[in-house]
Write a protein that binds this DNA or RNA. Sequence first.
DNA 1: TTGGTGTATTTTGAATGCATAATGCCCTTT
DNA 2: AAAGGGCATTATGCATTCAAAATACACCAA
Lengths: 227, 227
Amino acid sequence: MSKIQHRNLYLEVADRVRELIEHGELEPGERISEKNLCERFGVSRTPLREALKVLTTEGLVDLLPNRGARVIQLSIKQVKDTYDLMSALEGLSGELACQQISDAGIEAICALHERMLEHYRKRELAEYFAVNQQIHESILTAANNEPLMEMYNNLNQRVKRVRYSKKMTDEFWSKAVEDHEEMVAALKLRDGKRLGQILRDHLCNKLEVVSLAGVIEDEALLKQANA
Amino acid sequence: MSKIQHRNLYLEVADRVRELIEHGELEPGERISEKNLCERFGVSRTPLREALKVLTTEGLVDLLPNRGARVIQLSIKQVKDTYDLMSALEGLSGELACQQISDAGIEAICALHERMLEHYRKRELAEYFAVNQQIHESILTAANNEPLMEMYNNLNQRVKRVRYSKKMTDEFWSKAVEDHEEMVAALKLRDGKRLGQILRDHLCNKLEVVSLAGVIEDEALLKQANA
DNA sequence: TTGGTGTATTTTGAATGCATAATGCCCTTT
DNA sequence: AAAGGGCATTATGCATTCAAAATACACCAA
């Protein structure tokens, strides 16, 4: 029997707004109207404003005094900085995972890895991404470090929008798969230092940024053009 | 001329509550009475409640639905996890700092290092700590990575209480100073990989935890006895 | 006593109301 | 026509109010 959980309204609202941002229904830089969202969710301003304050602390929203809230708009530098940070966190997760993960856990990741390879061979990008993400999540979970998980997810949330819009070159893709081969090898040996190093250097964190620059600038230009 | 800044009340309140927690006026696990704090700060419940929500997302406060707020009380594992995470962040800050820091910046840190050594020789613990912290802050600043800084400060805030209460053994202390010698050497060579490695392994992050276990357990027992 | 039930009190959650700051628009002036 | 000033409108910040949940406490029964 699961515990009765009554969440507060502001948490629910925060989730919903997060979704709106993630799915692009609220665009970066867009002004968030309290009234508008209140009507949309059917709640009063109090829980909505509390939610906005939470989202501001999470770094997803920018709250200007007396001038309302906007969806955060990351500069290229901020995205790069965030990726650097996430790499470091992934590195740590690799080290910790090697110390803590069970044999079964390793096997599970190997299985995911095989599935990922299959999707790579078939050039199924969306499926590849999904499994890829599962692998990284599994390592993160195996690391068994709450604040690490929490921070990683928070950062991921911030860059999700731009992350999804990335293009994958063949060269980039094959390199990523190579990295994953090495990762699995290190994991099997429980070589934490090595896995950590690979994850820190993993191109998903580095190379991406290069192509990202394009995306962000395109969006910025587009916005200017429309304004 | 500095910009006119009018901060919202909830930010002010959040700062004040943070201080109360940091200085131990609100103890870990202690129930936070809304009414009490409202009267103390002379504000209505709205901004206070907003502040509590912010502090909850920051991980300093635990907000239970319909049952009020409490100051967060970290378990030994959580403290250990947080330290692991902070080590990784410090490591990253070292790598980045080496890439970005100016010659003048390096010299400034060397100067701080000399001052720290002086305090070490004179066994001036408080002064040593202060300068030590300045060094780490300088490196973090030199890394020039906003979200990194933000996260580090947040984590630091969470463990500040237990961090201050730590005891310093001679052996531990001398090892710490040795580490710092190596750090400065790596920094002078702008050897990011090396500085990163040293910082990740720096005992301030590792050894500390061992003695911490004692402190936290003592406090827990004390609390039980009083209850 | 001890355990449980029902009521009163306190505390929290959310909506509403009010004061103030920001925005938009029209009008004047040059 | 463009720039600036003033008024009306709107949005925000905070206080207050109302409703619901949790807590405390007294009372009763075993």
